[in-house]
């Protein structure tokens, strides 16, 4: 076992050697992470629909894109995936390509793809496009929009964080000040405030710059924050700082336990499957779009996944559960 590891390591070291020798070692690698991708043919969903996903970051980013791939997996759908398309025009080409191939459902998993979708969707009236995060479908009949009410989970997590740190400051590392990141962070700040704690918020201006997110989190720590949170795939940098300084970490989008087994307190996980199931049902009945869906605590599209390894006070947990109930009943405003 150990020998194999060293072999693989040498392969990485000697990049060119890898080219010649990796046939053997990489066969195990590629089998391990096929992303559920099909071998060229269109994947059959349990719904009978063929589904494709175009997403800006990697399928296994422990953040935004992974939340969608995991959700489709829970529905038994193994989609065709084009990931890492942060260039909007490339994404547009991929979306158009899937539509041309006759894919039933194309998921455009990125707010920034909306502008392109407005041009593409009318050209393929038989195809259903699912686009998010977006609060409305821009008046297109074959587009479903989806959006997480990230402020709801954010509020509860802010409340938990505030109660844990007892009035001290909490550092927030945001990416670009847009989309669900803003909703999450604003909700989190309100929740922390409700628990008598303050938040220090910095948007780095990038979804992907891990180095910047790391440095920002370090600056928060040096300023004396007692807990950290952050969102987007760049948040992994901030998680490392939280772990290194043994500070509680609050994750969102996907469950961030793979990033920090010990210090992730709770993650707000997007269960898109709740709304996707509804959309697939509508599509099978012939409605290809025209509606907007929202993930909320109430419809269980937003799930707070607590980390068992982090011991949370019963009082704090009770207050959190109470807040969830309050948000569902409408007694607590999170925006």
């Amino acid at each position: 076992m150990k020998n194999k590891k060293i072999l693989k390591l040498l392969g990485a070291l000697f990049a060119f050697t890898l080219l010649a020798t990796a046939c053997g070692s990489s066969s195990t690698d590629s089998a391990g992470e096929s992303d559920g991708g099909s071998d060229g043919g269109s994947a059959e969903a349990s719904t009978g629909l063929s589904v494709a996903v175009v997403a800006p970051s990697a399928s296994d980013d422990v953040a935004f894109t992974q939340s969608m791939i995991d959700s489709l997996g829970r529905l038994g759908v193994s989609p065709q995936v084009t990931d890492g398309t942060f260039v909007v025009e490339e994404a547009a080409a991929a979306i158009r390509g899937f539509a041309e191939d006759g894919t039933d459902v194309v998921v455009a998993h990125g707010t920034q793809y909306g502008g392109s979708l407005e041009e593409i969707a009318p050209d393929f009236p038989e195809t259903s496009f699912i686009w998010g995060t977006a609060t409305d479908n821009r008046g297109l009949d074959n587009v479903f929009a989806y959006n997480p009410a990230a402020d709801q989970g954010g509020y509860v997590m802010g409340l938990i964080a505030g109660n844990i740190v007892g009035g001290e400051d909490i550092g927030v590392v945001g990416p670009v000040e847009a989309g669900d990141a803003v909703a999450y962070i604003n909700g989190f700040a309100l929740g922390a405030e409700a628990a008598g704690s303050s938040t220090s918020i910095v948007y780095t201006g990038s979804f992907s710059d891990v180095a910047l997110a790391t440095t920002t989190a370090q600056a928060h720590v040096d300023n004396g924050v007692s807990a950290l949170t952050g969102t987007s795939q760049s948040a992994v940098g901030a998680v490392n700082i939280a772990s290194a300084n043994e500070l509680p970490w609050f994750g969102t989008q996907s469950n961030t336990e793979p990033w920090s087994e010990d210090f992730t307190v709770v993650s707000q996980v997007y269960h898109w499957d709740v709304v996707l199931a509804e959309m697939f049902a509508l599509i099978e009945d012939g409605t290809l779009g025209g509606q907007a869906f929202e993930l909320t605590l109430e419809n269980e599209g937003l799930v707070l996944e607590y980390n068992d390894a982090f011991e949370l006070d019963a009082d704090v947990r009770a207050a959190a559960d109470e807040a969830v109930a309050g948000i569902i009943s409408g007694d607590i405003a999170t925006q």
Binding site: A12, A15, A58, Q233, A244, S260
Partner: peptide
């Protein structure tokens, strides 16, 4: 190499 050999960006020991 990163996408093929690692994929998920897992933190290493600092």
């Amino acid at each position: 190499l990163f996408q093929e050999l690692v994929g998920t960006p897992l933190p290493i020991r600092p």
